[in-house]
Design a protein around this nucleic acid. Sequence first.
RNA 1: GGGAGUGUAGCUCAGUUGGCAGAGCAACGGCUUUUUAAGCCGUAGGUCCAAGGUUCGAGUCCUUGCACUCUCACCA
Length: 513
Amino acid sequence: MDLTDKEDTGSGSPLGTERQGRFERQRQEKLSRIKELGVEPYGGRYDGAELAEDIRHRPCLQGAEKGNIIEGEEGKAKCAGRIVLLRDIGKLIFITVRDWSGTIQIGLSKKLLGPDASGWPLAKLLELGDIIGVSGQLGKTRTDEITVWVDNLRLLSKCLCQPPEKFHGLSDIDLRYRQRYVDLWANPEVMERFKNRSAIIRTIREFLQARGFREVETPMMQSVAGGAAAKPFVTHHNALDLDLFLRIAPELFLKRLLVGGMEKVFEINRNFRNEGLSREHNPEFTMLELYQAYADYNVMMDLTEEIICLLVEKYCSSKQVQFRDITVDYTRPWRRARYAELLKEYSGCEIDDIPAIRAKARELGLDEAGMDEEVVINGVFEATVEDNLINPTFVFDYPAALCPLTRRKKDDPKYAERFELYIAGMELANAYTELNDPAVQEENFQIQLRGQDESMATMDEDFITALKYGMPPAGGLGIGIDRLIMVLTGATSIRDVVLFPLLRPIKDQAQGK
RNA sequence: GGGAGUGUAGCUCAGUUGGCAGAGCAACGGCUUUUUAAGCCGUAGGUCCAAGGUUCGAGUCCUUGCACUCUCACCA
């Protein structure tokens, strides 16, 4: 295909496609001129570069005077990064270089770089988006800007595509998601958020490991998709001629590990659910699940509160965190309220008063005819309660029928020892005292299967067998990592915390025409 | 799947009642050794998302389709 002449028709034509042909041709021309200078335009290993932020905080800059260069060893500096701003003033060029710590200004002058082909002539050919490595003496300009005055310049990678507008950056949401590799360097706050995401997950791991939890990996391709009520993705293994499901939850495998004697385990990884997309739902999402033998849901509640409060302390500027148009207050202790109590508080219905609840459901426009009691109750709960749970709130003791994997309360078997954590009206965590009675578990599965269509109705027999060998009583917890990152970093949409969210492919490309 | 909105230069966006397609940045040529979104002079750049329709005339009005955003529904 001729990339230079074909014109793309789509409005969402990404940067760097055919539509940019003339810009790419111009940049290709510069590339040729660089090669003519005898310069390799795609560099190679570049050792000893210091982060821009570290250079800015050098002690030798403390007393430095405006307009001066710091001579000698202590003034030497070396850095590498992408050209994000470029000001060519004739025999002097100022460039703002961005690495992933931040930006620093470098100064290139004809005097310092001289007539050498890879010096001044190369400098004059640099353009926005190129990746360079430089070394030189540190100093401050007349306007007090910290600057590396370059005596050695290397081109590490030529940028052949037109970068986005330098002031507004890339703001088209669709383009940002499709070309995250541009979004990340064009919009520093995006980089910042993903660096935070990485740090938050590291902190969670450190917290759990310090408490004796071991990280494990369980299958993502499963022949029975269990552990949650959700529609799975189907895939196929050729050699075994076997249909497999992408997991909807790791739960049943992690509990097998409890049976095996791993007493404290966790897994942070992807689940896949074949359902609708929204700003709180991506088809693949990251979940922390952990299990602790001999614990129960109260232990999990304390643990959840501790982890998240630690994260707030480390990654948020105060206990009051802005999210969308609301403020979430993480001050401890968090509210812990019974499911039935909240239902009464916000819907006015007693949980046992089924006629009143059905009436409320109709009032809310829910189609309750033919639905099971618990489903109607939960419908009313979701419609009336959830949006009001702004500050972190543990909702506990769910109707047992909604919790097939949960141990029931000894003194009141209508309810199960389960809690969910809500923050900003979103469900963030789900936990229970795990059911370890194989007979009850099997019965619950049977009931659950009756409500599903046949194609998906498979029981995980081996899981029942595992329980028959004896699983220690345990507490289990799941935390939606993406949503947690959202509330901690103030991201409105789950797509802002997932590097490459699922998007519909652009049609022309998908058809390969 | 329903409803609302958006789609104009590489990017960010204007475009009046239906009457010659616009700006800033980026690009290209020139000047410039202290700039900070550098500045000044000049040049080029368009399938106005696509297809059809109404009209003497459509970026603008209508229909259909595509993509995205918001929202509702489905869904832990």
